[in-house]
Design a protein around this nucleic acid. Structure first.
Lengths: 347, 347
DNA sequence: GCCCTCCTCCAAATCGCTTTGACACCCCTT
DNA sequence: AAGGGGTGTCAAAGCGATTTGGAGGAGGGC
């Protein structure tokens, strides 16, 4: 059942039927209702392909997920971000198109999406310092919102980000207040922008106490359980072991706990741990009492906000670049405590 | 730059240009090359919207992800499945459209995708027993592949699944061989089909040793760390505590480990654990030596296979329903050992 | 020299919608 | 009675590709 057939059944022209269904004013209220009723009765739904061609809009937004061809690791926060964004899209009648591409093919993917007219805009995931994608998208004229920021880009662009620097600064200060001086940083990969900001917050907080970060206590890796475990062992086996950890993700925190307990220590008593908690739906930080003390910011909310911003940019071209900086909250869990007196017990 | 403009520049008709670019035989090889060169030079890319309308194909497949409105939990395996499927789609020039919908709206979403012509086929995630979606899709005539199976549906349909029953049966037998008799099952939600099959494998293995499963040692919940933790405490605090666990996911396994160590026990020595490992990229089961003994089957592979099957069904309509049953491998890790002699030490 | 095939290429229709411009028609005003 | 301003409707031209049904010209057979 298409528009023409429906129009014939009603004894009207396709024009009128189209207008009636799309709420244009120049159609009699009585006919509008007649049309609406017929559409409902015949289960008519306008063909999306035809609408797209006729209007020149894709009614779709793209999420390009670069897949590091070497590690092939999907970012675990991705599914919750998508869930938040998807909620907004479906509410607005937009489709969400996912492109999983090897990271070296990402630029080509944007050109393709643009020139074929597959999407009206894109979300950029996982920005790196001096990320080249921003210039590419600006040049293409494809509307976009970055989830995160790309230090070093002199261009202005739309972004939604968490105040990563501040979050890690506050977390570090909290550990310092508890008396910790040997604090290990278990960071994400430091070509990622957020990881650099977190590191900056960490070192700034140390510097305010005239402390220098010990390179032997800083690591930077994929945010997996394994990497947390490895970093934990390294820092605990250090000649001057860490008494506290600051980790970039829940999974790394879990790896840390395994390392800590593997060395016969107890998290929260012998060793303190603070994590960054993205509030993932399938990785909740405990129930009523959080397991980990954490800086928390919901990545699902970030997805919602990014999607809303993008749809705004698409429907109102020419608006100046928008920014949204979210603050992470510091929540107290069972993984932190005052620095233990005397040296930690030997393994 | 569209087809007409390109044709004018070349002094050819749009027909010929279209045919040249799409590899039709009725065009001179010399002109074909001339056209290809011009297309490359002018960076011509056919408009996807126009192709879709003209061919009547969507060149897109849909993944409808039902989001339980109560728990709002995204399945963590989802991102790896998508990564595998997405690889296949982009290789074949298809778009992947993701719809995140409240589970009560799922049926309506399928009708919509079909009648608007947004997709050529869909992947069905998370089938339940007697899943109504299968009949809906059959009636709609929308090609689909189910990731998993839906017991109770008398209809035949395309699916890709892991042999969950066999996997849990083998794992249980392995624990029985090690001398365990008090084995706890930490299952996923048992309205999900895979969970029922796993439970069946578990009870069958017990039955073959004339053992009855103890309801007090069986739990069924979302596959999160917390649920594993809770189930672990319950089984360990049981008057006749479990000496071994069989868990449905890596995250539940991690929760179990936390519970076990929280009770002052040691996993692999005092208590054995076997998990089902979906081989998620960000949740690897250890490095060279696996942490958990596990039944393993890559969900990313399942994504690849499902996508390939779906594209096959789309391009060759009328082929009889296809099935692909994957066997999980049983890999030995550090979390299992012979049953401890005597009662476990009190906490 | 004529006719018939192939080989290339093209004009025009088509996909299903939106949107522009025009046209009746009715009611008012002057 | 003529002119003017709404209202409600429609015919037709698009969007940018594919696809059908020919058509012109070169080459070959007789």
């Amino acid at each position: 059942m298409n528009l023409k057939e429906l129009a014939e059944k009603l004894g009207l022209s396709p024009t009128t039927v189209s207008r009636a269904l799309n709420g244009y004013p120049e159609v009699n209220e009585a006919t509008r209702e007649r049309v609406a009723a017929a559409a409902r009765r015949h289960n008519y739904r306008p063909n999306a392909r035809a609408i797209r061609l006729a209007t020149g809009r894709a009614l779709a937004v793209g999420h390009v997920i670069p897949l590091n061809t070497r590690t092939e690791i999907m970012n675990p926060i991705f599914s919750d971000f998508i869930a938040g964004a998807g909620e907004i899209y479906s509410r607005s009648g937009y489709d969400m198109i996912l492109s999983i591409v090897p990271d070296e093919a990402e630029e080509a993917t944007y050109r393709d999406l643009m020139s074929r007219g597959t999407v009206d805009g894109v979300i950029v995931h996982g920005p790196k310092t001096n990320d080249p994608r921003i210039k590419v998208l600006k040049d293409l004229g494809l509307p976009f919102v970055v989830h995160g920021r790309a230090t070093g880009s002199e261009l202005d662009y739309n972004w939604v980000d968490v105040n990563n620097r501040r979050a890690f600064q506050r977390a570090t200060e909290f550990l310092l207040h508890l008396g910790h001086r040997r604090i290990a940083l278990v960071n994400g990969l430091e070509h990622m922008d957020f990881a650099i900001r977190r590191r900056a917050g960490f070192t700034e907080a140390l510097a305010s106490q005239s402390l220098n970060p010990d390179p032997g206590l800083m690591s930077s890796d994929e945010m997996t359980e394994i990497s947390g475990y490895r970093a934990g062992l390294r820092a605990l086996d250090h000649p001057q072991p860490a008494t506290a950890f600051l980790a970039a993700s829940m999974l790394q925190g879990m790896g840390l706990r395994r390392a800590i307990e593997g060395r016969g220590l107890h998290m929260g008593r012998d060793v303190s741990v603070i994590i960054f908690d993205d509030d993932l739906s399938y990785l909740r930080n405990g129930e009523d009492v959080p397991i980990f003390t954490a800086t928390r910011s919901s990545v699902r909310d970030a997805g919602r906000l990014s999607a809303e911003m993008l749809l705004g940019v698409i429907t109102q071209p020419g608006t100046p670049p928008q920014h949204r900086l979210l603050e992470a909250e510091l929540i107290l869990g069972q993984s932190t405590g005052p620095v233990a007196i005397g040296p930690a017990p030997a393994p």
